[in-house]
Design a protein around this nucleic acid. Structure first.
Lengths: 335, 335
DNA sequence: GTGAAAGCGCTAACAC
DNA sequence: GTGTTAGCGCTTTCAC
């Protein structure tokens, strides 16, 4: 069925090495030879076998991307950007879902499923800082996000603390003082939830406002459903508030819906800001203010860093890269 | 760095073939030998090299999935389901984005980027029925959706016509008569837009209602933004309508927003139904009625069919499989 | 039950 | 400039 290099060589009347040279654009080949080889390639419809090439070169041209799940808009858009960035570098992307569960994340790191990739972009959720050892794997690895923060591992992260601070300052700037933090993870310090909550506390502290723990609402998962549930629980307590900082957009969108069902007006009674800038926020009612965490920049930076490692360029010092962010004011905070 | 089979063989004092036998669970090995080999494997931390294995066996354990883009919720959720289904069969998924452009789709079909996959799940958008030839590729291919409908190619599709009919019947059942079709593709017959529009026309015809072409609104892309734009254009024409059948949920969500901005009430003045059942529809305001196209069933069926082809099981007759659908009534149609 | 050896398709020394 | 040759790490006849 498929023609091999020797088939081409035989037809062109040259050696297999010459074919290889032509295929790999080796510079010193006579024009005549090259043409005969190209003709033979065309005639046989020859396509290099990338598996054999991988075995030989030790590289597959594939990078792995492990995320909690693509159903979460943030990760879908991240995957989109990663695939684009990889494509620009002639790489292809194998996507794994971990469900955010620690066990599955460990499996991805150690298991055989990503064996034929050249390196891994990994966005952990279940793993914590104590798992730094586990993340010292014998292949190129770049972590996305701050669940595991270890100077011995490459990282690309958004500026969670600073960006969250800016989001809360945006609410404070509107005169809001009873600001809910939605989606907190009990006791977490490192990780998106912990860091964004730190930003929340910092902003309130800078404004000389004490944190009312009744306004810090826990929620493990960050789907719309969870935002809705958490908001229902909060409303049921009867506690008063005039703004919500949701730790991501999906939580915000779920909450937005429940707030308005309860008869409260957004932004008049309650201003709402999310985090992530998923496209949906442009079309919700009201449109959702949010933080643009620089997803595209994260993807491009991470792919570049991973390729640097794969190709063995750059020194051994691990990098901790941080991308920019930007507050995006929309109707839900009164614009 | 990495141990090979011969390293293991040397340490265990056996031949490389014996190691291979143990690794592949070949039945007839003496207990003692097996234990010595397993011990050596553990000691060296040996992991089989999957690239070499692929070269030998001709299979990589990777399937390709080509979709327009993951930023569209429908495709993100489809990719999620495909990865799950593949995982259940011990396969891993390489995701490519085509942007829905014909050129890029051709590139995916013929190009070298998916070379090391065992087969391809392909959701075309730019390719049309005239491209059936192109889709007769020398590797296992299963098409998702009906852009190219050729009995010589395996297909897994939703029941676009019937499901669209049911959606429009749902609106008719509410007493609506001036029903907009949003997102039509001029002249398209095969393809989601064409088929869903056929369902729309069928339902109206069955109800004895003529189609007012002023209510058939074109829109090439199916993002929220396009739904919003199209609805703005429609409102500007001043044409009257009491319901909208959007050809997908994202269009519906964009339109929902614009309709309400214009002062019309949903569902009182205008009932809206979409198509796809993306999670977001549960949390929009109002929540969005839609058609559940059986995404999970599509993913599982397609992965199974592709594996059947890869493994050479089943006869040569190509299959055209259709999955179930279900109307999901929510607030935007008055529930 | 286990071993020897060939070869999957390609690349990279090294000759000529 | 081009050919020869030796593997990359594994599976798989075929002997023993």
């Amino acid at each position: 069925m498929t023609a091999t290099m020797s088939d081409v060589a035989r037809l062109a009347g040259v050696s297999i090495k010459t074919v290889s040279n032509v295929v790999n654009d080796y510079p010193h080949i006579s024009v005549g030879t090259r043409e005969r080889v190209l003709a033979a390639i065309a005639e046989l419809g020859y396509v290099p076998n990338s598996t054999a090439r991988s075995l030989r070169s030790g590289r597959s041209g594939v990078i792995g991307l492990a995320v909690p799940e693509l159903s979460l808009a943030y990760f879908a858009q991240l995957a989109d950007e990663v695939i684009r960035a990889a494509r620009a570098q002639n790489m292809v992307v194998l996507v794994e879902q971990t469900g955010g569960e620690r066990e599955r994340e460990l499996e991805v790191l150690r298991g055989p499923r990503l064996q034929l990739t050249d390196g891994l972009l990994f966005s952990p959720l279940g793993l914590g800082n104590g798992d730094a050892e586990v993340a010292r794997v014998p292949y190129p690895l770049v972590l996305l996000g701050e669940r595991i923060f270890d100077p011995g591992i490459d990282h690309v992260t958004m500026q969670n603390v600073e960006a969250a601070e800016a989001a809360v300052e945006h609410l404070l700037g509107l005169g809001r003082r009873r600001i809910v933090a939605l989606g907190a993870h009990q006791g977490e310090v490192i990780g998106s939830a912990g860091l964004r909550l730190t930003g929340y506390r910092n902003a309130l502290a800078s404004a000389g406002i004490g944190v009312d723990e009744a306004l810090v609402v826990e929620e493990g998962l960050w789907h719309r459903r969870n935002g809705a549930d958490a908001m229902r629980r909060l409303l049921a307590t009867g506690v008063q508030f005039d703004a919500v900082f949701a730790l991501n957009d999906e939580l915000a969108l779920g909450a937005l819906r429940v707030i308005q069902e309860s008869g409260l007006r957004v932004p008049d009674d309650v201003a709402v800001i999310g985090f992530d800038d998923v496209d949906e926020g442009n079309y919700s009612i009201p449109s959702l203010s949010t933080v643009d965490p620089g997803r595209q920049e994260i993807a491009e930076t991470a792919v570049d860093l991973l390729l640097t490692r794969i190709e063995g360029r750059a020194g051994p010092e691990k990098q901790q890269l941080r991308t920019g962010y930007r507050i995006v004011p929309r109707e839900s905070t009164g614009v």
